[in-house]
Simulated assay, not measured.
Amino acid sequence: MNEAIAIRCDHVSVEFASGSRFAGRTNVVQAIDDVSVGFAKSKISALIGPSGCGKTTLLRLLAGLQSPTFGTIDLGGLSSRGGEVAFVFQQPSLLPWRTALENVSLPLKLLGRGNSKDRRDRATELLKSVELDDVAKRLPSQLSGGMKMRVSLARALVTEPSVLLLDEPFAALDDMLRSQLGELLLDLWRERSFTTVLVTHNIAEACLLAHQIHVINRGKIVNSIDNPLPWPRHESLRREARFGEFYGTLSDVLKNSDGCV
């Protein structure tokens, strides 16, 4: 893609020691192996590959949750510490003693943004954007799995980040709910145009949501594919022949990369 690049990885590697040093069996595991890639500004990029291939490790590097052993990552000066980079985990990880509204407003409080009314108003606005303004006073234990994930999305977006990182956020949901939240993500992206990097093992999800798809296997990006499907995207696209054709193409790429998911 001939696009402006928001995030650039330059020869990034991550090594872990495995085994017992006391037994003299320490081995080095290459979780990420000399990855150089750029993620387009204001676009959705997907990372796809088999379990244990390095997808989540790479995403954590982008979020600053861990450091590379070698190489550099350039986010153009953006930082999660300032709320400019937001991360949505696979599990919602909401504070159980705080209401949905309080969970969403918490990042603003931690960053010292606005007074309590400003934070409450902003959190209410975000809950409305994910269609949950009617459960603002409920605790996480009173919410369904899909509701918790929408609260988690609202919490990530409350700081108006430039970059949104998602680690298989819909993996634990049933197919219908997963589709609904995928549609919601597209709606939120259309409104805000944040740079998005999505980790998924779901081929159809990558086809529907992403502008570009990076196939990872054994810690390497083995293929990068521009998604030819037209925009705007909606769930109805799944029923079209061109969606099925691209799904088949991506499936073949994964199989030929020894990256079945």
Rank of each mutant, 00 (worst) to 15 (best):
5 I>A: 02
11 H>I: 00
11 H>K: 15
12 V>I: 07
15 E>G: 03
15 E>R: 13
18 S>D: 09
21 R>I: 11
23 A>C: 06
31 A>N: 06
34 D>L: 00
36 S>W: 05
37 V>L: 14
40 A>M: 09
41 K>I: 00
42 S>W: 12
43 K>D: 02
44 I>K: 12
44 I>F: 14
46 A>Q: 10
47 L>S: 00
49 G>T: 01
52 G>C: 08
54 G>P: 06
55 K>N: 05
57 T>V: 04
58 L>E: 04
68 P>H: 08
69 T>W: 08
69 T>H: 04
70 F>W: 13
72 T>V: 06
73 I>D: 05
74 D>I: 09
75 L>E: 06
78 L>N: 15
79 S>F: 07
80 S>C: 12
83 G>V: 10
84 E>M: 03
85 V>H: 12
86 A>D: 13
89 F>G: 00
90 Q>W: 13
90 Q>H: 08
90 Q>C: 09
102 E>N: 07
102 E>F: 07
104 V>H: 14
106 L>F: 15
107 P>A: 07
112 G>P: 10
112 G>Q: 09
114 G>K: 10
116 S>M: 12
119 R>E: 04
122 R>A: 11
130 V>S: 10
132 L>F: 07
133 D>M: 01
134 D>F: 14
138 R>C: 05
139 L>H: 14
140 P>Q: 02
140 P>I: 02
141 S>D: 12
143 L>R: 06
144 S>I: 07
149 M>G: 01
150 R>N: 05
150 R>V: 13
151 V>Y: 12
155 R>K: 09
157 L>Q: 03
158 V>I: 06
159 T>P: 12
163 V>S: 09
165 L>R: 04
166 L>F: 11
169 P>C: 09
170 F>K: 01
172 A>Y: 03
176 M>Y: 08
182 G>F: 11
183 E>G: 03
184 L>C: 02
187 D>K: 13
188 L>R: 07
190 R>C: 00
196 T>K: 13
198 L>F: 14
198 L>N: 03
201 H>I: 00
202 N>H: 07
204 A>I: 02
205 E>Y: 03
205 E>S: 01
211 H>W: 09
216 I>R: 04
224 S>H: 12
229 L>H: 01
239 R>G: 03
240 E>A: 02
241 A>C: 06
246 F>D: 08
251 S>G: 13
252 D>G: 07
252 D>E: 15
255 K>M: 14
255 K>R: 15
259 G>D: 11
